[in-house]
Computed example of a mutant assay.
Amino acid sequence: MTLKCSVLASGSTGNAIYVETATERFLVDAGLSGKKLEALAADAGIRLDSLSGILVTHEHSDHVKGLGILARRYKLPIYANDRTWKAMDSMIGTVDPAQKFHFETGARKTFGSLDVESFAVSHDAVEPMFFSFMHEGRKLTILTDTGYVSDRMIGMAREADTLIFESNHDISMLRMGRYPWNVKRRILGDEGHVSNEDAGMALAELVRSHKADIYLAHLSKDNNMKDLARMTVEQTLTAEDVHPGEHFRLFDTDPESPTGLKEV
């Protein structure tokens, strides 16, 4: 069985991504209520009681809101780095120590035939990290919640067949929007979120030499729109001589409904 994934939810209100092989099944983050996560999983045809565990990227509530509930209900292992464990401990309630596992930034773990590698990003959490998954020659990379995309991050995502990639905001919408200036400055800063334009530039580096399916993720509810994100990213890629069909396919994600379970 090949590597498959479904973006159960993605956006500023909550995030959860499902990854599976024939023998391993993981959630990356659980940033919605337990009830909502169960409904989203059911919509995607996924059984949460079959999970191998939950991988945590960072402690913000839109990534861990339902983490403790799911872990307790389904007796699931949780994997996070040491600083993230300390930061989220009071947020997720009591979890059996036997369910707590450490996955340090920059480490690589093997679960059956699935290899998982973590890497650092630039975000205003204690030690945020994201993941690449490798199985039988296929690669999936998840990269959101970063203020910029460094050469090192590009290196970690290189040759991915599927990219779940941040396209958080339209810069003009953010600047003219209702957010107070300190929040705008945070989002635009090096530890904030990637804009549509910057997503397109980073993606051009990745898909120019290796065709990939791209899921535009973590869109702001107030400062972006699906059509705008897709149009801006595609225009940016095309301006870099990277073309739909030939180099990439673009897909939307949604904060309220899952994408189909798809082969990487």
Rank of each mutant, 00 (worst) to 15 (best):
T2M: 00
K4C: 09
S12Q: 10
S12C: 11
S12D: 10
T13Y: 04
N15L: 02
I17S: 14
E24P: 03
G31I: 02
G31V: 02
K36G: 03
K36D: 15
A39P: 07
L40G: 09
L40V: 09
A42S: 11
A42R: 14
G45K: 01
I46E: 11
R47A: 06
L48R: 15
S50E: 00
S52D: 05
G53W: 08
V56N: 05
V56A: 15
E59L: 11
H60Y: 01
D62W: 08
D62S: 09
D62R: 06
V64A: 01
G66M: 14
G66L: 05
R72E: 08
K75D: 15
P77V: 08
N81P: 07
R83C: 02
R83Y: 09
T84R: 04
T84Y: 05
A87E: 14
A87F: 08
I92F: 10
G93K: 08
Q99F: 01
K100H: 05
F103M: 12
G106D: 01
A107W: 07
G112P: 02
S113M: 10
D115E: 13
E117V: 11
A120C: 05
A120V: 09
S122C: 09
S122I: 00
H123G: 07
D124F: 15
V126N: 11
V126M: 03
E127K: 05
M129P: 04
S132P: 03
H135A: 14
H135T: 06
E136W: 09
E136G: 03
T144R: 13
D145F: 08
G147V: 12
M153N: 00
I154G: 13
G155P: 03
A160T: 11
D161A: 08
T162R: 07
T162V: 13
F165E: 04
N168W: 09
N168E: 06
D170L: 07
S172K: 02
M173I: 12
L174R: 00
L174V: 08
L174W: 09
R175P: 02
W181S: 12
W181I: 10
V183P: 04
R186G: 02
D190P: 04
S195Y: 06
L203G: 07
A204T: 14
L206D: 13
L206E: 00
R208V: 14
K211S: 09
D213F: 01
I214M: 09
L216W: 03
K221V: 13
M225W: 00
K226G: 00
A229H: 15
A229K: 13
E234S: 09
E234I: 11
T236C: 12
L237W: 01
T238F: 01
A239E: 12
D241S: 10
V242M: 10
V242K: 11
P244C: 04
F248P: 04
F248L: 00
F248N: 11
F248E: 02
R249I: 05
R249T: 06
L250E: 11
D252L: 00
T253E: 07
P255W: 14
E256A: 08
G260A: 15
